[in-house]
């Protein structure tokens, strides 16, 4: 037992080394959202098509809120996944056109296809600030009661969808049978 104490520094060193090693692979760009389990912030804005839209217009079911812009290259990367989701139709995708110009946004949708039920036109990024957005693309998972349940920063590709969103959605469906 007395001999064991000579190993304490080695054990302490290994513990610290493993912790720091793991730290190297954390993504410092992924900030925890303070809005998880909080209701969607109140908003009354226009869509990029010029129609008025507010909280009451949000879907009454689990949906995605995707922050995008025509200037945003990673948005093109995740675009096929969003298109697939909108074609399947189980989970509606609402867009937030973040700090963009509506004419450029409409052009972008026409060229690439439109996966969004509608896109809220947030030219000044006001709604973005209320959501804690700091750059497109970001995707929020919102439940049927309009409460934010999950947030993903950066590209939402098929791998992210399978690993992060599918389990989160399954969990939501389990707690509120629809």
């Amino acid at each position: 037992m007395n001999r064991f104490k000579y190993f304490i520094p080695v054990v302490a060193f290994l513990a610290l080394a493993v912790t720091l090693w793991r730290g190297l692979y954390l993504n410092p760009k992924e900030l925890p959202s303070v809005l998880i389990d909080k209701p969607m912030p109140a908003f009354a804005m226009n869509t990029i098509d010029g129609e008025t839209v507010s909280n009451t217009d949000l879907p009454d079911q689990i949906f995605l809120l995707n922050v995008w812009g025509s200037y945003c290259l990673p948005c093109l990367v995740e675009h096929p996944t969003l298109m697939r989701l909108s074609e399947e139709g189980d989970i509606p995708v609402v867009g937030i056109n973040y700090k963009d110009r509506d004419d450029l946004a409409l052009d972008w949708l026409e060229t690439n296809g439109n996966p969004f039920s509608y896109s809220i036109y947030d030219a000044e990024g006001r709604l973005g600030i209320d959501l804690g957005v700091y750059g497109a693309p970001e995707t929020y998972l919102v439940d049927a009661n309009g409460v934010i349940r999950y947030r993903h920063v950066a590209v939402l590709d098929e791998t992210v969808w399978e690993n992060d969103f599918e389990p989160a959605i399954a969990e939501l469906k389990a707690e509120t049978p629809q």
């Binding site: 410092p28 700090k99 000044e124 973005g128 600030i129 700091y134 750059g135």
Partner: peptide
């Protein structure tokens, strides 16, 4: 600045820093 990680709002040219300064 939430986007640029190690700059304050004063020192950042990022879009979000600009918006937050305005706020």
């Amino acid at each position: 600045c939430p986007q640029c990680q190690n700059a304050n709002l004063t020192g950042s040219t990022g879009g979000i820093a600009e918006d937050l300064r305005r706020e």
